[in-house]
Structures are given as C-alpha cells and as structure tokens.
Simulated assay, not measured.
Amino acid sequence: MPDFPPPVPQPARKDWTAHARMRLAGVLILISGVLGGGLIYWLADDPVDATAAMQGRQYTAQLERIAGTSGVLVSRFNTWLGHLWHGKQLGITLCVIALLVAAFCFWLAGLMAVEVPEDTPTRR
C-alpha cells in the first residue's frame, strides 16, 4: 500500500449566525451606497431645467381646468419625483436609500439576535 501523507488539519470553519450575516449585509449596503452616491454627486452635472416652462401660470390654469386640482397636484408630484433621478440629486437619493435599507438591516439583525428562553410559554 502506498504511503500517503497524513491529512492536514483544517482550521475550524466559522459559521456565521443569521444576525451576523444581516449586520454584514447592512454594512456592505451602507458602504457601497454612500460611496456610489458620493461618486455620482461628485461627478454629475446639474441637469438643465426643461420643466420650468411647463410650470407657468397659463399651463397650471389649463391643467386645472382639464384635470382639476388633483391633476395639478399629481403633475407637481410627478415633476418632483422626476428630479430625484437626475444629476447631483441622484447621488443624494442613492445615499438616502442606502441609509434607509442599511438601518432596516441593522434593526432586523437586532431582532434576530434576541434569544428567547426555552421556558417561555407559547400562546395557542
């Protein structure tokens, strides 16, 4: 029988708990979102405002006559929402979304880390 070398002992594998993985995900989301948003903010130019002509008094009066007050409010909301995805505002939006998602991950990890004693009665 051939002489094989003895097996090399492997280091103990570190098993990550669920809350540790959730915290790691939160940290990665936070770092990548803030870095990406900062890079976009730094490199982006402010977009040319083409909607300024559409927000005039005549346009608003005509829109109100056709669609009512709710149509004017929806139009303003749509314009505001459209501005969030262009230029420097996109970098800020990305940072805010990353902060919110990372905060949710940290909150969820905190909930997952709480251990419930086994002698706690359960409701049925």
Rank of each mutant, 00 (worst) to 15 (best):
L99F: 05
H83V: 15
L43F: 11
M1V: 14
Q10P: 09
C95M: 14
A53G: 14
G38D: 02
D15A: 15
W85I: 09
T93D: 04
F104A: 14
L35A: 05
V72A: 03
A52L: 12
L28T: 04
G26R: 01
S70N: 15
L84Y: 05
I29V: 05
T120S: 08
D45Q: 14
R123T: 15
A109C: 00
L35E: 04
R57W: 11
L28R: 05
D49A: 12
F4C: 12
A67D: 11
L100E: 08
I66K: 11
H86P: 11
F77L: 13
P117Q: 00
R65N: 13
Q58S: 12
R57F: 10
A98G: 00
L94E: 07
G33A: 02
C95N: 11
L63V: 01
A12Y: 11
P6A: 08
V74L: 15
T122I: 13
L94V: 10
D45K: 13
A20P: 05
D45V: 14
V74P: 14
I29N: 01
M54F: 13
T69P: 10
L24A: 12
P7N: 05
D3P: 09
R57G: 11
A113G: 04
D15P: 11
A25E: 03
S75H: 14
F77P: 09
P6C: 06
Q10D: 12
A98R: 00
L73I: 11
V116H: 06
G91P: 01
V114A: 13
Y59R: 06
P9M: 04
F4D: 13
I97D: 08
P9F: 03
C105I: 01
L73M: 10
Q62N: 11
D46Y: 14
